[in-house]
Amino acid sequence: MIINSNNLTKLFITSTMIGLQSCGQSGQNTPTIQKLTITGSSTVAPLVGEIAKRFEAENSEVRIDVQTGGSSRGIADVESAVADIGMVSRALKEEEKGKLYGFVIAKDGIGIIVHSSNPVKEINDEQVVAIYQGEIDNWKEVGGKDAPITVVNKAEGRSTLELFLKYFQLKNSQIKAKVVIGDNQQGTKTVAGNENAIGYVSVGAAEYEIDQGVPIKLLPVGGVEATSETVRDGSFPLSRPLTVITKNQPEGLTEEFIQFAQSEEVHDLVRGQNLIPFQTK
């Protein structure tokens, strides 16, 4: 009986191993193809994915894999050499500039959004800070109706959060959020579904959603209207460069791809993702 059960286990193990082996071989049959792995920010990933597709179409021997997971992961993966290029949806910090090379490929603004039925037209920076700290918890205190404010915040590790905190000089631990979200779209959906919510998302994405009839509106930040125009000309204070990063000075395929991603050839793709092309002069 024991022998039988042993044979059975052996059978399973060998069959699994044969399965694995054949998988391994099929991948090694394509040595001529050069591969780039890019990981990081979910805001940048769809854009880089489209740029990569066009780059692949023009260079048939190249394969570019774009993975997502957030800016922090982009940095970690580049540092541990898991990825050739990382994506971060902000500028490199001073302490990162020594270790990493950053290349801006597009710009994006972060706008404060509320439900379109909300009568509030403008709130100043101090009020935003007070709302996010829970000191103001009713819309009537900032000129709205008598209703509790639902604060929507981004999850830890998201660049949008970091940028928001930096501009408003807040710490994440000070924020009393009722809803914590991950990706951009989740922000617009949460606010569109809650008349008393306040959140912050990409200006380009919010403009697109408003065009599509989603019931949200953008509030000015620091007195400047949140539009693609003000983000492009730099007058909108809460904007960020979408950056690709490398560990070493890029060369070869990596350099070619980054140059391609910064070139005018991809400006239509940048606009297609509701982002703002970045002019390198």
Binding site: T30, D65, Q67, T68, D183, K189
Partner: peptide
């Protein structure tokens, strides 16, 4: 092209389209 390629599953595609891609 092979099992060693990265491939997006339907569920990830749905998640990305509904939560990360406007439109």
């Amino acid at each position: 092209q092979s099992l060693l390629d990265s491939g997006r599953s339907l569920s990830i595609h749905i998640f990305d389209l509904s939560m990360n891609i406007s439109g």
